[in-house]
Design a protein around this nucleic acid. Structure first.
Length: 637
RNA sequence: GCCGAUGUAGCUCAGUGGUAGAGCAGCGGUUUCGUAAACCGCAGGUCACGGGUUCAAAUCCCGUCAUCGGCUCCA
């Protein structure tokens, strides 16, 4: 055996992965749940017999791979528990997920949330019994016959989908009391599943297809120790406390109303953030030479027929009729921008022509998929369409990357994971242009030091794309920016520009958004900052707190001076003690609290307190103005 | 759209067949106060909406609307 650290270990032929682990050390032996050989991705069972020389890495329970094994085993234990409680339940699939595991079952009786506890109890018994997980190979026909006779129609369907060349395996535990078709691997025995918790029951279509029967999906999670499970629960609670719907309500940023389902109302405080973001993008547009436009909301459907939306996107569109003409509300800005491009005869000298648009978009989303600010039916993007010559793609992408990374840094998001999606089957455009475009994208990424992963064949039918997945402060992933090349729309709208030699050529369109939708971005930002917006975005940047009535006149004067300098400043006129005023300001996440009492009035200062509770001591009016001006300029977080 | 849950005062929530409750917020008064909640009082509800069962419904049943968790992870 060659180990990951390069050590070579002599082991008898046919020994198990577990044997090797124990040979290395008893601690590792106890902690291991599987192994990987020869750098392969597949996790093998501990009992996997090693019959030839190979390189081996041991998978321990606390690794990402190991946790997957533990969770997958937990899902079997849950299935066993469910079958004990409801013997008529038919099993389908039960994999591990990023956050835990689930099992989809077909059962006429409804599993209610209060049943989860019963299932957990049953699972605990199985775990306590600590019986071995045994791997069994069966013949394909035998397995099929058996599941057919048992009425396990999902298992039959699964086996039918497995190529005849592959062997069929099952895993059993409880000394054979429970057996399930499974590729594995599993932990050595049920006792390895030391900490688990069932979460919810939900509906899920068989194979994710809504034409199929809806099964009951039971979600759970499992960890290798109670401590880790508790830590996970705590993290979930923290995430809940940061939920933008909760904070948005508390801070008076936005509201929802059934009168306009899935469509946020931005309240004055939320609107400040929203507009400030737009303003920031406009500043970038000056630097990067974009031209902003304003385009109509409603178009004759002719446009959508030309663009292809009518054929491919109608389900998501709002339509209306007037003067016996049919109109559609725009779900995207791109088609209208082609009219702007085509409005005059374009020269190669004008390219890249960058058209930006903060137009409001409407997309019908199915009622079950909407939520908060992150999935809405009306929104606006920091949208732009870049009309470029094919040989400008690389440079344009390079400058976009710079812009995107700058924005992520500004808000404190991690550098994103980048995915390049390439040509799918049945796509539009020639090989030549696709190859050129894909290599231009790849080169731009590489030359700018951006590591990326290729998703082969995952591009749109009209062009390759780059997606950016970033992580927020508590490790949740969000897709914000996208860059999408498009060979299709220029074709459909017959866009052309005059080349240097007087000929005509078709431009390539690049669709791109950096923040994505403003609505969604505000939502993500609320969760990222937990409502503690950086000074430049904060709806109320400072609040002046007079200690008593007598300090009011001085306080008002101070507020006026800060407002004159362009800052957003509140004045607490309430009849409360300072402690209560401080508390209110703190709950509203106001960056600076300026307290005014006898001392400050006498000295011509304010007592400055920085969010959440840092005492900056007394500062003069000029001192505060200088501090605030600096914060605005640097956009410091 | 489908599966499940939820919907009571502005907010957070209690109330499981018999007169609709609390805290906070609001309003009025007292207090003029030094860094996370002063005190007293008042007002506030078609219990989401519509229908049904019942002597009686926030509570039980049916429907509608909205919100929330899922519906990609593949033996």
């Amino acid at each position: 055996m060659t180990l990951p650290d390069g050590r070579v270990l002599e082991m008898p032929k046919g020994c198990s992965i577990r044997d090797v682990a124990f040979r290395i050390g008893s601690g590792l032996g106890k902690a291991c749940v599987g192994g990987k050989i020869d750098g392969g991705a597949e996790i093998l069972d501990l009992r996997y017999a090693l019959v030839r020389d190979c390189s081996l890495s041991i998978v321990t329970a606390d690794s990402k791979d190991g946790l997957e094994v533990v969770r997958h085993s937990a899902s079997h234990i849950m299935a066993d528990a469910i079958c004990r409680l409801w013997p008529q339940a038919k099993l389908s699939i039960g994999p591990s997920t990023d956050d835990g595991f689930y099992y989809d079952i077909d059962l006429d009786a409804k599993v209610l949330p209060e049943d989860l506890e019963r299932i957990e109890k049953e699972m605990s018994k199985i775990v306590e019994a600590d019986t071995a997980f045994e791997r069994c190979e069966t013949g394909r026909d035998a397995a099929l016959a058996r599941y057919r006779s048992e009425g396990e129609i999902y298992k039959v369907e699964i086996i039918e989908g497995i190529s005849a060349a592959e062997s069929i395996t099952t895993y059993r535990h409880g000394s054979g009391a429970f057996e399930d078709l499974c590729r594995g691997p599993h932990v050595p025995s049920t006792g390895y599943v030391k900490a688990f918790k069932l979460l919810t029951v939900a509906g899920a279509y068989w194979r994710g297809d809504e034409k199929n029967k809806m099964l009951q999906r039971i979600y759970g999670t499992a960890f290798t120790s109670k401590k880790e499970l508790d830590a996970w629960v705590t993290r979930q609670e923290e995430a809940k406390a940061r939920d933008h719907r909760k904070i948005g309500k508390e801070l008076g940023l936005f509201m929802m109303h059934p009168i306009a389902p899935a469509s946020p109302f931005f309240l004055p405080r939320g609107t400040i953030i929203y507009n400030r973001l737009v303003q920031h993008m406009r500043e970038l547009y000056r630097t990067y030479d974009y031209k902003e436009v304003i385009t109509p909301q409603i178009f004759d459907t002719e446009m959508f027929k030309t663009s292809g939306h009518w054929a491919h996107y109608l389900e998501n569109m709002y339509v209306t009729e007037k003067d016996e003409r049919q109109f559609g509300v725009k779900p995207m800005n791109c088609p209208s921008h082609t009219y702007i491009f085509a409005n005059e005869k374009r020269s190669y000298r004008e390219l890249p022509l960058r058209i930006a648009d903060f137009g409001r978009l409407h997309r019908y989303e199915r009622s079950g998929v909407t939520g908060g600010l992150t999935r809405v039916r009306t929104f606006c993007q920091d949208d732009a369409h870049l009309f470029v010559a094919p040989d400008q793609i690389k440079d344009e992408i390079a400058s976009l990357l710079k812009m995107i990374m700058g924005v992520y840094d500004l808000f404190g998001f991690t550098r994103p994971k980048v995915f390049l999606s390439t040509r799918p089957a049945g796509s539009l455009g020639t090989d030549e242009i696709w190859n050129k475009a894909e290599s231009a994208l790849a080169a731009a990424l590489t030359e700018n030091g951006v590591a990326y992963t290729v998703n082969p064949g995952d591009g749109a039918f009209y062009g390759p794309k780059i997606d950016f997945i970033t992580e927020d402060a508590i490790g949740r992933e969000w897709q914000l920016s996208t860059i999408q090349l498009d060979f299709n729309l220029p074709e459909r709208f017959d866009l052309k520009y005059t080349t240097r030699d007087g000929g005509e050529e078709r431009p390539v369109m690049i669709h791109r958004a950096i923040l994505g939708s403003l609505e969604r971005f505000v939502g993500v930002l609320i969760e990222q900052t937990s409502g503690n917006f950086p000074f430049w975005l904060a709806p109320e940047q400072a609040r002046v707190l007079p200690i008593a009535e007598g300090h009011m006149a001085y306080a008002k004067e101070f507020v006026a001076a800060l407002e004159a300098a362009g800052h957003r400043v509140g004045l607490d006129v309430s009849n409360q003690k300072v402690g209560a005023k401080i508390r209110d300001a703190r709950l509203m996440r106001i960056p600076y609290v300026l307290v005014v009492g006898d001392r400050e009035v006498a000295e011509g200062t304010v007592a400055v307190r920085e969010r959440p509770d840092k005492d900056l001591g007394p500062m003069t009016r000029d001192g505060v103005l200088a501090l605030f001006a600096d914060l605005e300029r640097t956009k410091k977080r």
